[in-house]
Simulated assay, not measured.
Amino acid sequence: SGWNSVGHMDTMRRRRHHVGHCREGEEFLHNVFHVLFQLFSGKEKANLSICWLQYEISKVVQCLQTKNKKKLKAQGRKSKKLAKNLLKAPDNRNQLSLWKLYAYLEWLLGNIDDARKVFDTALCTAGTGGLKSPQLCSLSLLYAQLEVELLESLEGAVTSRAVHILTKLAESGPYVPYSGQVLSVSVLKARKTYDHALRDYWGKTPASDQDQVSDANQLVNLVGCYALFQYLTVGIDAAVLIYAQTSAKLEAPAPQKCENTGENLGIENLPAALEAVTVLHTNLLRFHMNISVYPLNPLREALTQALRRYPSNQSLWRSYIHIQRKSHSASKARRFFDGVTRSTDSLEPWLFAIQAEQMRKNLIENVQR
């Protein structure tokens, strides 16, 4: 559930220091953000605030990756101060996207209880839009995903905080913070609501290209919430089924209507939505393998198919080289990298192929010591 870095090149390691985020560059970016913040208002100011906070989060992520606790603590203080100042602006006080980023920042810094308070506050003040509210769906999905990552197994997951969040989202009523239990009746009603919401989406046709883009984002959040809900309350197979059905619909070449039922058998191809759904699918499979016994082949097949279609997707490549670390044979991965690099002009396959070889080299050296 990470975020794309804004205006940030990945750090390259040297012997004693790191390249990236130099002092002069930081001062320049801060000045640019500060000047633009004074010039903009309304929606533009809110969008700039989101970009600014995303950039700050990218620096926190960098500190986490380099395991520099001292720098993380200092950066965390700066980023939290900025987040609070941004939320104090009149144009930003009701921006759920900013509240979501602030809660995520607290979570990254290890302040789980504080992050939950921010999430709960945002959900309580967000209204009762439920599954029809794109921002509310996105906020609830991230909150639930982060909570799921804390689970050590699926035992008792049906009464977890994540299920509570997703159930309340489906109820479209005022949000009530988690009290430690989830009613079985609420779970059944929520499942039916999710199913109807997804069916309703397939049954409608966007009026314009802009509506289609907005609906595509909403679809990704809806599918993500529904699949995660099914995963926690039924199991991995139920979640995979949701992703498979959604992918099949999105891959349909053109919209067609059934003469008898009037149901759309396909919608216009939405590459961005299909890619996002694929990432959610593979991330869930990868997580499930970490906490349960599950075959590797479904994840490997999903990743190889997705990477042939989206060779520049870094999240998919990270998952691929992660699972390939456990493979005793490098030949299959090398053939796959070779095939992808020959079929695309993207730079990512080359970079991740180099990283995979470096990881394998380090593994061999560690074994030989």
Results as ranks from 00 to 15, higher is better:
1 S>A: 08
280 L>F: 14
299 L>C: 02
349 P>D: 09
61 V>A: 03
177 P>V: 01
58 S>T: 04
246 T>H: 11
139 L>D: 13
264 N>E: 04
130 G>C: 02
189 K>F: 08
87 L>R: 06
115 A>Y: 07
168 K>M: 11
220 V>N: 14
261 T>N: 04
233 T>Y: 08
270 L>R: 03
207 A>V: 09
104 Y>F: 10
74 A>S: 14
76 G>R: 05
367 V>D: 05
46 A>Q: 15
102 Y>D: 04
48 L>Y: 12
302 A>S: 15
100 K>Q: 14
100 K>E: 13
250 L>N: 10
325 R>V: 03
111 N>H: 14
138 S>A: 14
43 K>V: 03
268 E>Y: 06
354 I>T: 06
362 N>C: 05
69 K>G: 08
130 G>E: 08
159 T>Y: 03
203 G>N: 15
84 K>D: 10
9 M>W: 09
191 R>T: 02
194 Y>V: 00
229 F>C: 13
363 L>N: 08
25 G>L: 04
16 R>C: 05
217 N>Y: 14
26 E>W: 08
175 Y>I: 02
252 A>W: 09
158 V>T: 05
158 V>P: 00
195 D>K: 09
5 S>F: 04
115 A>G: 13
85 N>G: 01
127 G>R: 10
283 N>Q: 14
55 Y>E: 03
113 D>C: 06
124 C>P: 02
170 A>P: 14
143 Y>T: 11
366 N>Y: 08
367 V>H: 11
93 R>Y: 03
13 R>Q: 14
203 G>I: 01
344 T>R: 02
30 H>C: 02
327 S>C: 13
186 S>K: 06
7 G>K: 11
203 G>Y: 12
334 R>A: 03
104 Y>P: 08
285 L>P: 12
287 F>H: 15
144 A>W: 11
84 K>F: 03
280 L>Y: 13
175 Y>N: 05
206 P>I: 01
52 W>T: 05
260 N>I: 03
21 H>P: 01
176 V>T: 10
282 T>P: 13
139 L>V: 09
188 L>S: 11
219 L>F: 11
252 A>S: 15
256 Q>L: 10
1 S>F: 06
244 A>M: 03
78 K>E: 14
101 L>I: 01
10 D>N: 05
235 G>E: 14
273 A>G: 07
120 D>V: 00
98 L>M: 12
253 P>W: 07
118 V>H: 05
288 H>F: 12
